[in-house]
Computed example of a mutant assay.
Amino acid sequence: MKHLILLVTVVFCFSCASTSPKKEAHDRDTTATKRITLLFAGDFMQHQEQIDAAATDSGYDYQNCFSEVKEEVSKADVAIGNLELTLGGEPYAGYPGFSAPDEYMHAILDAGFDVITLANNHCLDRGRSGLERTIHKLDSLKVPHVGTYLNKEERESKYPLFIQKKGFCIALLNYTYATNGLKVREPNVVNYIDKNEILRDIKKALAKNPDVIIACMHWGTEYKSVPDSAQIELASWLFAHGVNHIIGTHPHVVQPMEMRYDRINKQQHILVYSLGNYLSDMSESKTDGGAMFKMELCKDSAVRVEKCGYSLVWTSRPKHSGEKNYKIIPAASPREDLPSRSSNRLKIFVKDSRELFATHNKGIDEYIF
């Protein structure tokens, strides 16, 4: 995990462990071009089969799950993932009431992820105690997180989440469409999709004059490979009211991505409708993988997207691979030693995903690592 320093103020500051004097001087020069790389991953899940596979005599071991993507994730200046479960403590369980072992979170951080989004339909799976324990655990690990809060005062002081690194100030927003019929109990707060609330949050973010505002939206229709009308309408509304980029999760399948350009305001907008599953036990067609999305922002006289792209990932399962644990595989350049059952399933996922993106993506292509 990249070294993080948590400030007492509302700003979360990321600090590199070894910064040269030359680099520091470069960052202080406001006329110099600055660059930052952001990486986003989809849904981190823990079904019962995953929990069982990770069990050891002394606890749970998830390190191998991320071994083939760790280098790529760690290269990003800021890596962000959606924790679609609670760290609610024992008894650990998968669907429908997710509570994962703490070791899972440790492995996610060890893989290089820096920021966790929590506003999703499973954040209340263990009720108030699960929501609060998840927050306390992340706080104890000094992990910036966004989307759920112990109370209104905490939300007011910590939201939006401002990320400052490499001369950039990035405002991060996070909302969910619902929480599976479970109601949040006071004093806890969950960020639901509510335009009035979102508009207030955008205005609060704009008051800090960030370089970009990124909204992580948990939305859409499960298992549907194209965005529904509510996603399409809300995306345009968010852009019209000040959000620069949108990264979506929830449908458990990948959905199209777009690069838009607002000619009136001369702004670029990245729109990723859904990144699909990052690590899960879902095995139905198109749910057995997902995508990582990477963007490089550049700032001199203005802020722009220098380059961006997606990379497909797929989950290898013990019952097909013969290995003990689940593992995320770079789908575009998989290991040559994958068993035929795994290899064939991976190829189907890649074929389906590429056909979808070739048809619907606008200005965003695949990159291979």
Rank of each mutant, 00 (worst) to 15 (best):
L238Q: 15
V8Y: 11
L118P: 08
T30L: 13
S15P: 02
G112E: 03
V313C: 07
H122R: 07
G322Q: 05
P318D: 00
K2D: 06
I135E: 12
I348C: 09
E153T: 13
V8I: 10
K23W: 11
E296F: 01
K2V: 10
V190I: 05
F14K: 15
H136E: 15
K319W: 05
M295W: 02
R263V: 15
A302D: 13
K75G: 11
S140D: 15
H106N: 08
M282C: 03
M105I: 12
T315F: 01
Y175T: 13
H136R: 15
N191S: 09
I247E: 02
A111Q: 10
A331H: 08
S58L: 01
K286W: 09
L161D: 13
Y92I: 02
I232H: 06
G289L: 04
A119F: 09
L109M: 12
L85A: 08
L161N: 06
R28L: 13
H269G: 08
K165M: 07
A76Q: 03
S236H: 14
L138Y: 08
A205W: 02
L124M: 09
G97A: 03
A76E: 01
S58N: 10
I368C: 00
S140V: 10
I270V: 14
I5H: 13
D194A: 15
E323G: 00
I163V: 15
I364N: 00
I36V: 06
H320L: 08
L109P: 09
I232V: 15
S333W: 00
Q48Y: 03
T31Y: 03
G276A: 04
E355R: 13
R133F: 02
N277V: 11
I116Y: 10
Y175A: 10
R335H: 08
T9R: 03
D27I: 03
F239T: 11
P251T: 06
S353Q: 09
T9K: 05
E323K: 07
K203M: 10
H320A: 02
L141N: 07
C298F: 04
I170R: 11
L109H: 15
C16V: 12
T176I: 02
A230T: 15
V184A: 12
L346V: 08
T249P: 01
A55K: 12
M1Y: 05
A93M: 04
L173R: 14
N361L: 01
V184E: 12
E306V: 05
E197N: 06
A358V: 04
A100Q: 05
F369E: 00
D43H: 04
Y60I: 02
Y60L: 01
A207W: 00
N174A: 09
K166Y: 11
S225Y: 15
P251A: 05
S15E: 14
F239P: 05
N174L: 07
S157P: 05
M259P: 01
S280Y: 05
N120F: 07
D194W: 05
F369G: 01
D352Y: 09
L338Y: 12
W219N: 12
T249M: 12
V253Q: 15
C308H: 08
T19V: 14
M259S: 08
Q268F: 01
C169Q: 11
K286I: 06
R155V: 07
I247D: 05
H145Y: 15
I163K: 13
V78G: 08
W237K: 00
R28S: 11
A76Y: 07
M292C: 00
S18D: 07
K299S: 01
T134V: 13
E186I: 06
